[in-house]
């Protein structure tokens, strides 16, 4: 599946391990959350970057402890109408996570903007839709009434625009280098 990031399809630099796959020597490795928890003692010493795959029934507070050490969090959308991951994404961003937050599963272009607004920064998408469709869908609404969302260049929060003399800076679309 193509990986969409910063408005372009890119090569995934991460290795995604299952529950049993052996850990490589280094590099970027994502691990299912249950395994990450169980093997944390040894994983904490991993020389490369770590990421994790959550399920959309995991609780953000259980993940909180690990977030400072992670550079990738993946949240699944088992069906496009299952909106739990929107809330988990927001909680994870509110917990201060600044790394890559990736959406995977059943994602449609018409949801892309909502996902970006709650803090997703990369998207594993279906081959069905060409890049132009995603780019077009990503900029259909330039305004949002809600505050505290992730915003990109050209997007504004209505209430902040109305009431704050200087609008808050655009929240970082690209993730910060991870702290762990």
């Amino acid at each position: 599946m193509p990986l969409l990031k910063n408005n372009a399809f890119i090569q995934d630099s991460w290795v995604h391990l299952g529950a049993e796959d052996p850990l490589p020597e280094g590099g970027n490795v994502s691990i299912p959350f249950s395994r990450l928890k169980n093997e944390w003692e040894s994983l904490a010493k991993f020389p490369g970057q770590l990421g994790t795959l959550l399920s959309n029934t995991d609780h953000a507070e259980d993940v909180a402890h690990f977030l400072p050490h992670l550079a990738l969090v993946i949240l699944p959308f088992p069906a496009f109408v299952d909106g739990r991951a929107y809330s988990i994404a927001r909680q994870i961003r509110l917990l201060g996570y600044r790394g890559e937050l990736r959406a995977t599963g059943n994602i449609l272009p018409d949801q892309f903007q909502y996902m970006a607004q709650v803090g997703f920064s990369s998207f594993e998408v279906s081959e069905r839709f060409p890049l132009e469709v995603w780019q077009q869908a990503s900029k259909q609404m330039s305004l949002a009434y809600q505050r505290g969302l992730y915003r990109r260049v050209g997007e504004a929060e209505v209430w902040s625009e109305r009431h704050e003399e200087t609008a808050p800076e655009t929240a970082p679309w690209e993730e910060q280098p991870h702290a762990g």
Binding site: G83, Y86, R90, Y114, L149, V158
Partner: peptide, 13 residues
């Protein structure tokens, strides 16, 4: 009305 309009977190309840 404004706050709930196209709320990105609460559009797939």
């Amino acid at each position: 009305r404004q706050w709930s309009s196209l709320h990105p977190e609460f559009s797939y309840l």
